[in-house]
Amino acid sequence: MQMHDAKRVEIMIEAVMERRLTELLEAAEVTGYTILPVSGGSGRSGLWSREGQVSRAGGMIAVVCLIRPERLEKLLETVFEVVDRHIGVVSVSDTKVLRAERF
C-alpha cells in the first residue's frame, strides 16, 4: 500500500491553555488534531496527578497533529506563541500516513 511521509507533532501543554492553542492552530489552518487527556506524570516540579482534582489548573493535555512536512515550520511558530511562557513539551517525529490528501 502507498505510504506518504508526514510529521507527527505532539504538544503537551497545560489544560487551561487548550482553547487558546486550538484557536491558534485553526487560525494557522491546522484543522486536524486530536486532544488526549493526561492523567498524571512527572516533570521539573516533581510528580503530579489528576486524581481527585476539581480545578483545571495543574492538569495537562496532549494535542497531536499529523501534517505534511512542508507545513511543520509554520505550525511550530504558531505553537510557540502559546507554549513559550507555559509548562509544556513539544516533540516532532517522522511518521507515515496512508491518505496524504487528508493532511
Binding site: 497545560e14 487551561v16 491553555m17 480545578s55 483545571r56 489548573a57 495543574g58 511562557r85 507555559h86
Partner: peptide, 22 residues
C-alpha cells in the same frame, strides 16, 4: 480559592509557581 483562581492564574501569570498558592 483553590478551584477558580488557580486556573485563571495559570493563564494570566504562568511564571508564578502554582505549588506555593495551592
Amino acid at each position: 480559592s483553590y478551584i477558580a483562581v488557580p486556573a485563571a492564574m495559570r493563564v494570566a501569570l504562568p511564571q508564578a509557581n502554582p505549588a506555593i498558592s495551592l
